[in-house]
Design a protein around this nucleic acid. Structure first.
Lengths: 132, 132
DNA sequence: ATATTTGTTATATTTATAATATAACAATGC
DNA sequence: GCATTGTTATATTATAAATATAACAAATAT
């Protein structure tokens, strides 16, 4: 899977990496059971330090996106409990809605934008046997 | 308007302040044309440095939430162009949808969550003559 | 069996950013 | 005139990010 670090961004490298991996899982670019490159390989590939990659992997493990297996490496394994995820999403939406309200963007418009973003994902997502 | 800094949070003070002010505008706790306390007063009130408050105000000014007037102080003034805001919201939604897809949270569920968050805001928001 | 690669941990250093501390300036209000 | 406003400048401290080596145990490969 393709990863690119923006070295001029104000976002921390490990955050960029973490988000791109989540995006990769969401678009089925990388699927459940599949492995990511080793921390050393990926670090070499994208031009950052091994520990920075390790930090991203560790957080993704803690947040329930990866399982770190000695034989298979970093394996995509989505086993977080739904309730906590829903609370996280509610929190994210709260910030988004706040900004929308400040700009007189209506509830309807937000729903439309949400649909558009979903359409965007459907365009990128690859066919899958799992239904995800 | 009420502001409280969580000193044990991992979020930077100026980010906490910035988000709480945006939340305050969204809930009409503070309205367009109204002023925030001076950087020195607010800093004193919430127990942080003047420059940290100034940083939050400056960013809010740059992002089109405040206008800094010498006579009135930091005045709420929402004049950002809609297109850029919509792009920002689309970006935020993209991240949220990605996480939702990883957890098998459906489009319908997200729409429902969005409605719930709106309901939450409607509960908090105070009546206003402007329609905001 | 030996060598290599894996995740993982430890320690140290450098760099960047956040936060604080004083100080000062020009413009405004009282 | 005097206090307060946003604003800028400079310096220091504290924290976090990023890098650099190194090492260990477990697993894989040769």
């Amino acid at each position: 899977m393709l990863v690119r670090i923006d070295f001029s961004s104000d976002e921390a490298f490990y955050v960029q990496l973490k988000n791109q991996i989540i995006m990769g899982i969401a678009t089925s670019e990388i699927r459940e059971g599949e492995s990511l490159p080793s921390v050393r390989d990926l670090a070499e590939d994208i031009g950052i330090n091994m520990h920075t990659v390790n930090k991203a992997y560790s957080i993704l493990k803690q947040e329930g996106y990866l399982k770190l297996d000695r034989r298979k490496g970093a394996v995509v394994c989505l086993d977080a409990d739904r309730l906590r995820t829903i609370e996280e999403i509610r929190f994210l939406l709260k910030g988004t809605v706040a900004k929308a309200l400040c700009r007189d963007i209506s509830k309807t418009e937000l729903h439309e934008l949400l649909d558009e973003v979903f359409e965007e994902f459907n365009g990128i997502r690859k066919a899958s046997g799992t239904g995800r």
